[in-house]
Amino acid sequence: MTPAALIETAVLLGLLVLAGGGYAGLYGYGRLRARPALVAAATACWIAALAIALAIAVVTPLDAGWKVLVVVSAIVYAVIPPATWRYLERLHVAEGEGP
């Protein structure tokens, strides 16, 4: 790994998780306040995460295994915030605390 690639790769990995957090956070907040604009922004975050994952796969010198892990988890991750949200809603409805 060259010195420059080292920093690039680390920054991309950090941004990947941050974009993932943005997706989760905005999705949750958008659903909470029932604001479609925020949910759309959340989707944009996920697209950004996917783009970062693809960038990691294309430009960084990480080993193939890590690239596969990064891209696959970015794709699978699409369903996680909505699934978690639905689950939380169901949990609260079951407890009579629902929205």
Partner: peptide, 21 residues
């Protein structure tokens, strides 16, 4: 350790939910 951020994300979503509710 690549999986370790997952539960932490879960906590973020949960805290937003609970904070809102």
């Amino acid at each position: 350790s690549a999986l370790e951020p997952l539960p932490l994300l879960g906590m973020v979503i949960h805290s937003i939910y609970d904070a809102g509710m």
